[in-house]
């Protein structure tokens, strides 16, 4: 389905995750974050950068990966993206949510 956000039309799935990463911009990320009640700071963006990098290298995201990233520790990660931090930051980053096989 299509969604209009930050003056752009993007396609998202039923949970609001972008289905085409090429449509993502920082402004779109900022708006999605607002919908999740997150105000993006430089620190948030550092994490998103890391996540984009992992995505480009086709590395599956995990809490362990975050722990070893050297970018952020887990408590701070939960502090920045309260609730489900991996779920929320992937949504903001415009990439698919971490999945199982079914």
């Amino acid at each position: 389905m299509n969604k209009t956000i930050a003056q752009a039309t993007i396609s998202v799935n039923e949970e609001g995750y972008l289905t085409d990463f090429s449509q993502w911009t920082k402004e779109i990320g900022e708006e999605i974050a607002k919908e999740e009640n997150i105000d993006m700071s430089d620190r948030h963006w550092e994490v998103i950068d890391y996540i984009h990098n992992q995505y480009k290298n086709e590395v599956a995201l995990s809490i362990r990966g975050i722990k070893k990233s050297g970018v952020i520790n887990i408590k701070e990660f939960y502090g920045l993206f309260p609730g489900g931090p991996l779920k929320k930051c992937t949504k903001i980053a415009g990439i698919p949510k971490p999945k199982s096989c079914i």
Binding site: E15, K97, P98, K99, S100, I102
Partner: peptide, 13 residues
């Protein structure tokens, strides 16, 4: 109990 957001994580399943 799962680290994912559901026992099933793909929409159709």
């Amino acid at each position: 109990v799962t680290p994912l957001d559901g026992a099933f994580t793909k929409p159709k399943a």
